[in-house]
């Protein structure tokens, strides 16, 4: 203990001396040095413990963040090579051409396919979950009905995506005889996004102060007008954010599509039947990465990079909307 104490006195003196000849250092550096000294100077056992713990935590943080950067570097370097290259199926061509013979072309089929699938999923899933959430939140009282729907949605949101895939296959493809293709794939994705959108919409509606609804009712508006013109309007940023986040999520799903959407090296030619089979970006990543040819593997990374970029963009938009309109209410 005495040892530590003398050490401490020494440290203090040193620190004092350091701060005295400030004139030589640029200001910012000097401040950093002082800050660093303050962080690392040990004034006794408790400070030592504190410092060690701080170091431990920062190591953990580095480990936690590492996978993100590793993925980014791995996908980024290889993927960027393809996106910026000028060979066949590289550069702009990567987005604008279909794979063609030997998978040498771009992945337009996958990009268009994902657009079709997500489009169908949104077209079906968003209105359903929106009206569902409105009915549950605005038209029912808390009770058995409401809590059972909420419970079902929460359970659905937690179901592994491969189960949705299996369900889509047995119910849509086999039982309803829709057949594989964009319709079955899109509907399966819709099933996946419904619970998320329903719950986020509900949450957004719940955030709208009661007095806003009452003000509208007190002017002689009907319940429906109030819901449509006031409540939904006030909850709109929250609803949009939920929709966009769910969209970003289903965009990257492979499992629900394996048995439902089929695959296609060209663009779909019809809405039903074999012509409606579509590729999708995650599915393409999966099949390209398991290909023995190196240049096909590289295209898988480029597709993954594009997909990540798209999802990131959607998340940023969602974030922007939700942040920009937070000042809206009382």
């Amino acid at each position: 203990m005495d040892d530590v104490k003398s050490q401490l006195r020494l440290d203090e003196n040193e620190a004092y001396e350091e701060t005295e000849d400030t004139g030589y250092h640029p200001k910012a550096f000097n401040e950093f040095e002082r800050w660093f000294k303050r962080q690392t100077t040990i004034h006794g056992r408790r400070d030592l413990k504190d410092l060690l713990f701080k170091m431990l935590l920062s190591v953990v943080v580095i480990i936690v963040c590492m996978p993100f950067f590793m993925v980014l570097i791995q996908v980024g370097t290889v993927g960027m090579g393809v996106l910026l290259g000028s060979g066949p199926g590289q550069g702009l061509d990567f987005f604008l051409s279909t794979p063609g013979p030997g998978l040498q072309g771009g992945v337009l089929n996958a990009i268009a396919g994902t657009a079709y699938l997500v489009g169908i999923a949104m077209l079906v899933g968003v209105p359903l979950s929106l009206f569902g959430a409105i009915y549950i939140t605005e038209y029912t009282r808390p009770g058995f009905m409401r809590s059972s729907v909420e419970f079902a949605a929460d359970v659905l949101a937690g179901i592994p995506s491969i189960v949705f895939g299996a369900f889509g296959f047995t119910f849509l493809v086999i039982y309803l005889r829709i057949g594989m293709g964009m319709l079955a794939g899109g509907l399966t994705l819709a099933f996946m996004m419904i619970p998320t959108v329903l719950r986020t919409t509900q949450e957004a509606l719940r955030q709208v102060p009661m007095s806003l609804r009452e003000a509208s009712l007190a002017l002689g508006a009907t319940k429906w007008t109030t819901t449509w013109k006031i409540t939904i309007r006030a909850a709109f940023p929250g609803i949009i954010t939920g929709v966009l986040l769910a969209m970003g999520r289903v965009m990257g799903e492979t499992a629900p599509l394996i048995f439902t959407s089929g695959n296609n090296l060209g663009l779909p030619t019809s809405v039903t039947g074999p012509g409606s089979w579509v590729a999708s970006m995650p599915y393409t990543v999966w099949s390209y990465i398991s290909d023995p040819r190196n240049y096909v593997n590289d295209k898988a990374q480029a597709t993954a990079l594009t997909l990540m970029g798209m999802v990131l963009l959607i998340d940023l938009i969602a974030n922007f909307i939700s942040r920009k309109v937070t000042r809206r209410l009382v």
Binding site: E214, A215, S216, A218, G220, A234, V330
Partner: peptide, 20 residues
């Protein structure tokens, strides 16, 4: 009830302008 509420206006405890 709708024409009643048209004839009876109400102002609330906290200002609650519509988000428009």
């Amino acid at each position: 009830v709708y024409s009643l509420r048209r004839r009876v206006g109400m102002v609330f405890q906290r200002p609650n302008p519509f988000p428009m």
